[in-house]
Each structure stands twice: as C-alpha cells, then as structure tokens.
Design a protein around this nucleic acid. Structure first.
Length: 675
DNA sequence: GCGTTAGTCCCTCCAGCTAA
DNA sequence: TTAGCTGGAGGGACTAACGC
C-alpha cells in the first residue's frame, strides 16, 4: 500500500519577516523589511507558511534564501518556492483551469491586498520537490512559469524578490512539482499553440536552455542513463544529491524523484547572458528499436498493455507516458500506441496532447520506463524490468523473478548436519531428500556423520568414490568399497561394452563368471563384490549405478551424494532403423512374433514429436528375449532398455527417425534412501 | 481540388555475425 | 552448432506538403 503523506506538513526554507500587516506595506516599511528579511531564514511547513502570509498575519517573505544575510541576486543561495503574481488578464478560476490542463498546479494561491471580486489579483505559489541551488536552474523554472502564464507580472521574477503577505488562501493542492514536470507543461503549451518552433526557440533563449530537435534540451532519466561528466552547459540532478526533498506519491504508484539533466546553451553561463541558438552540442545517444517483437507475448504477460489496447483501462497521463516510452522503442510499436489512443472515444480530447508527447519521446530518445515506476498493476504480476523485457527477453539476459534469500554458510551447514542426524536416527523406511546448494560441504557432512554411524554412501562415479575413501582414511574411519571392474583384454571389454549397450546387464554378470576361471583380476573383482554383498553393518562406499541395481543387505540406510535422478531415469536414444532391425531378428522366435510385429508397427506409425505410450500389455518376456538379442551380435542398440520403458517419443533429426525413451529404475525398496 | 513528390512507418527478406 | 540478432535493401501503405 502506498503511503500518502501530508505534503503541507513538509518543511521548506524561506526568509519570513516577523512583522505582519493588514494592508500593503508603505515604502518606508518596505525598506525596513528589505534590510532585515535576508537575515531571517526560516524552516517552516507549507501549512505554516500559508497561515503566515495571509490575514491576520500577512507577513512578507522571500522564496529564496541568501548568503551573508544580504538580499540580492548575487547572494542568492537556494530556493524551493516559486511564485507568480497575476494582476490582470486572468481570474483565479481561469488560472487554475489552465494549471490543471498543463499539470503544473500551484501548491497554494492567495489573494493580495488589492484583490476584489471584480479585479482578481493573486499570487500562485509553487513548491518544488527539491531545493534548487543552481541559479541557472532557478531562472529556467521562473521563465517556464511565466511562459505558462504570460499574464503574470514580468517585473516580479528576479531571484531576490520580496513577496508581501495577502488577504486569504484561495486554493490549496496537496502536491509539489518537479523541474521536468514544469518543463513538460511548457512544451505542451508551446507545441499546441501557433508558431510552435519560433516560440520554442524564444523560450530556450529566455531560459538559457539549449534547443534540441525542436525542444528545450532536458530529459528525465534513470540514474544509470545519466550522461557522464558535468560541464558548463550540462546540469545533472541526481536523486541522491538533492537537498530538502519532498517525497510525494501520486495517487497510484511511486513515481517521484527521477534523475534529470538540463543542457544549457553554450553561452548561457556567461555574465553577459549572450545566447547561441545553434543546436545543442550535447547529442542524445541513438537508441535502436527492438525488432521482431512478439506483441502476442506482451498481450499475455502485461495487464497494462492488454487492458490498454482493449480500452478496458483508463490510462492516466503518467501511465500513457510509460507505455509510450516502451512501445516507441519497439519496431511496430507506434501502431500499437495509435491503437491504444483509439481504444476509447473519451481519449479523443487527449489525442493532440498525446501525439505531441509521442513526438517528444521519439525526438528525445526517451528510454523505456521501468514497470515499477508507473504501472498501476505492478503488484499483480511477476514483471520484468520494463514492458519490452516483459514481452521479449533478449538473448543472454536474465529476468530475476524473485530475489534469492541468503543465509550464513555456517548456519546452513549446521542445518545440513542436523538433517543428516535426523535421518539416521529416524527408523522409518522411505526416501529422504535434502536440497543443499553446491559447495556447501555435503560430502564433508556425510564423512563426519560416518564417524559414529554405519550406512552406505552412493557416489556418482568410481573416481568420487575413491576420493571419499581417501577422506575417510585420513580420519581413520573404517570402511569397505565396491570394486572397480578391472581392465580387460580388448575382446572381453568389447563384448562387455556391447552387452551394456543392448541393456543385457544380466548377461554381463554371467559372462564375467565365465571368464573368472582364466582371469585372476576378474576373479578378485567378483570375490570383492561378494564380500561387499555379504557385509553387515559396515560403512560402505558404492556408486549410484551399483546401489540401484544391486540388492544387498549391508546397511539399512543409503545416502546418495549428488542427485541420483540421472541414474534413476536414464535417457536413451536409438535410430528407428536399428530398432526395426533388432525386431526382425526377434521375430524368428515364434512365441513372440505377433507381439513384436505389433510393437514394430506401433513405432513405425507413431507421429513425430508426440510422446507415445509403449503399450504394456504387448510386453513380451524381456528375460526370454535377452538371450536372443545377446546371441545376435549385429544388434547394437539398447533394445532391452526400450522393451522396459513405458513411454517414448519419435523425433526426426536430419531426415533420420530416432526414438528417445526414459527408463525407470527403482530405489532399493528395503532401505531408507536419502539424497 | 487533384496529381505528384517526399517522408514516415513498418514489414519482409537476405546475409553475415555471434552468444549460448 | 544454431537460433537470435543486426544492418541494409526494398517495397507497400499512408500522410503531408507542394505545385498547378
């Protein structure tokens, strides 16, 4: 929930006289006020200022504060309050109506002593969201305000001006203005009037701002997009460098206090005020439009865009601005903006204003506005940085959906050890899963746990198994480990590899027993394996594969170090032609012939890219088939694995049909597994 | 008022480059 | 290796300005 603050309670610095009047001060009194007022710098709330400058107090004040206690344009120090005197040509209602149209509304208005119902004479007081400390910027603001209200008194614009008290407060608005907002109002007013180019140049000359592509050169940007360096012609206002800021919130979302910069004409800082109307020497970086933008995606993912284009949601000025800065940076986005403008007939009155805004955004290369600075639905969706990224994430970029939560490594490690302890103590059978970040020290925790407990540790590879074995030895922890298949002569290893490839694991064991008689290494391997199988309540190191495929009763608890999912659900692929070839061999066996033919047709007729169920009722006895396939040396694919799978998918890669399938291996049912 | 011209917007296609 | 990105060319649709 956005917290609304009472702007009127915010304090500002002015020089406020201590003497009140019930009429305009006489010349002598004015001289006295003038001499003393610069020394009376006062920090006062807007509300108190309103009370102090009207009857019964009606004190005089200067919007500026001064150095050395001396009131002059040279000793001007800073200013947050600006005022316009209207003595003729405009009544209060008319002035307020114009202010509202241009979105440059005064914070309060008070009538002066010579005000009457027939002749409105009043002062419009504008409070800014920051204290201005650069005289050039102060002059820009004052010129902007007098441009917005040409009927205002031209003689009351100097920096050191004293403003007398008045009759009463005629209007209050709980709001403050920013420098870019005032300039936006000026641009809107000039652009919608006649002879816009001439008037824009005239304003630039009067304010000292550089003229850039038909506009005064100023831009509201995010901190990161601010130009580098600050020269004589460049004024940069960084949010963090501002003083006495008033953090206001609009009725919707936080959108105050953007950074901005102003570019002054080459000579405007010089004493003689000479002005060059050459185009601004400070160029705006060219921004390339995003191409191939999927507007469909944006339609699905962005409520503001969706409801905006359909006309379901009434867009406020700042929201339309935000939408435009995003869409106009996309190729084809202009049409979408036009679509939005035409989506509601009520927008017709705003058409011209929005068209001007569109031109300004394009000319000044406004960057896409961030969602969280203007979107009313920002809390309702998981959104990217801005609307463009919401529709299309550029290659190589990352969208952070949720900030990670960090915790001390030591604390997490302790939690990990406690989790292991709990599993070991808990005697209930089942699978326990521990999700811990990489590098936390899971293996270390397991090794520590092994000091006082017996269980089986399954590691992904023999290499890692040996590493853990070394760590256990270093801590003098007794353990046994499953042996590694010894290096065999080429003919043997080729045969074993072939058997593994076709999925004939049972036959591998059978074959090893056969050659054990002539090969001592294999004999030792089998003996070691037997020892492991018959061990009871000893710390055992094994591999994921061995742990899944071997039924031993060495320990009741099995801990998988690292994720065993790749071993539990291995993915295989093979050419359809290999499978069909294997099936033709299997058809020689009369018992399964019909089943195999049906299975083969199922695969050949399966559509590509769609997951297919491998009908389980067609399953022949894999055990019987293993012998047939093993005997057929020309079959080299994992046919047995396929006959064990539940689902497969056919894919066409470079005009060749492939079958992909996932095999499902079960965790040992008699153990408590944890990983 | 009408036809011509210039400019804008935006789409498609192509070729070459490059991040993943 | 490959999909995504970029720059550039070309062209259709539309609009504004201009000349007659």
């Amino acid at each position: 929930m956005v917290k609304e603050i009472n702007i009127l309670e915010e304090k500002i610095n002015v020089c406020l006289d201590h003497e009140g009047f019930n009429k305009k001060p006489e010349k002598k009194e004015v001289r006295e006020i003038s001499e003393r007022i610069a020394g009376i710098t006062t920090s006062i709330s807007i509300e108190e200022l309103m009370k102090n400058v009207t009857i019964p107090n009606a004190r005089s004040f200067t919007p500026a504060v001064f150095n050395e206690g001396k009131r002059s344009n040279q000793t001007w120090k800073s200013q947050q309050v600006f005022a316009l005197d209207i003595d003729s040509g405009l009544n209060i209602e008319g002035a307020l109506k114009q202010s509202a149209e241009l979105r440059v509304e005064p914070t309060f208005v008070y009538s002066t002593f010579s005000h009457s119902d027939e002749n409105h004479k009043f002062r419009m007081v504008y409070v800014l969201d920051e204290e201005i400390q650069d005289l050039r910027v102060r002059n820009v603001i004052q010129t902007a305000l007098t441009t917005l209200f040409p009927s205002s008194d031209k003689n009351a614009n100097d920096a050191a001006r004293i403003l007398f008290g008045g009759k009463k407060i005629e209007f209050v608005k709980r709001g403050v203005l920013s420098v870019p907002k005032i300039l936006d109002g000026v641009v809107q007013k000039i652009r919608s009037g006649s002879n816009a180019t001439r008037e824009m140049k005239r304003f630039c000359k009067a304010s000292g701002l550089a003229y850039f592509k038909g506009y005064p050169h100023y831009k509201q940007v995010e901190e990161k997009d601010l130009p580098n360096g600050e020269g004589n012609t460049l004024f940069i206002s960084r949010t963090k460098n501002r003083t006495n800021t008033i953090n206001y919130y609009s009725t919707r979302v936080k959108n105050s206090h953007f950074s901005y910069y102003l570019v002054f004409s080459k000579d405007s800082f010089q004493e003689d005020e000479s002005y060059s109307l050459e185009p601004s020497s400070f160029g705006e970086p060219e921004v390339k439009q995003v191409r191939n933008f999927p507007f469909d995606n944006l339609q699905k993912r962005c409520k503001l865009y969706r409801e905006g284009t359909l006309g379901d949601y009434w867009l406020y000025h700042s929201e339309m601005f935000g939408l435009m800065t995003n869409l106009l940076n996309i190729e084809g986005g202009k049409s979408k903006v036009v679509e939005i403008i035409n989506s509601r007939k009520e927008y017709l009155t705003k058409k011209e204003e929005w068209s001007l805004m569109m031109n300004q955004i394009k000319k000044m290369n406004y960057a896409p506005t961030r969602c969280d600075t203007y979107c009313p639905f920002v809390g309702e969706c998981i959104h990217a940085n801005n609307m463009i990224e919401q529709g299309k994430l550029p290659r190589g970029s990352v969208q952070v959906l949720q900030e990670p939560e960090f915790e001390e490594v030591d604390i997490i490690y302790k939690k990990l050890e406690e989790a292991f302890e709990e599993i070991i103590k808990n005697k209930d059978q089942g699978v326990y899963v521990i999700k811990a970040p990489t590098g936390l020290g899971k293996t270390e925790a397991i090794v520590n746990l092994a000091q006082e407990n017996n269980f089986s540790i399954a590691l992904p590879t023999h290499k890692l198994k040996d590493e853990v074995s070394q760590r256990l030895n270093a801590k003098k922890i007794k353990h046994i480990k499953v042996p590694v298949l010894p290096l065999l002569q080429e003919s043997f290893s080729e045969k074993i590899e072939h058997l593994y490839n076709i999925g004939a694991y049972r036959t591998v064991n059978k074959f090893l027993r056969q050659i054990a008689n002539e090969n001592e290494d294999v004999s030792n391997f089998l003996q070691d394996l037997e020892k492991v199988k018959s061990s009871k309540r000893e710390l055992l190191l094994t591999t994921h594969q061995r742990a899944i495929f071997t039924n031993d009763d060495s320990n009741s608890t099995l801990i998988f170090d690292e994720d065993p999912i790749p071993s539990l659900f291995p993915i295989y692929q093979m050419k359809v032609s290999d499978l069909v070839f294997a099936f033709t061999k299997l058809q020689d066996n009369e018992v399964n012939k019909d089943v195999i033919i049906t299975l083969q047709n199922g695969i050949l007729n399966a559509p590509v890219d769609i997951v297919q169920e491998r009908s389980s009722f067609l399953l022949p006895s894999v055990k019987d088939l293993e012998q047939t396939i093993v005997e057929e040396s020309t079959v080299s694919s994992n046919v047995l694995g396929f006959l064990n799978c539940d689902y497969f998918i056919k894919k066409k890669i470079h005009n060749t049909d492939y079958i992909f399938f996932i095999q499902r291996n079960n965790l040992p049912l008699t153990k408590r597994s944890s990983f």
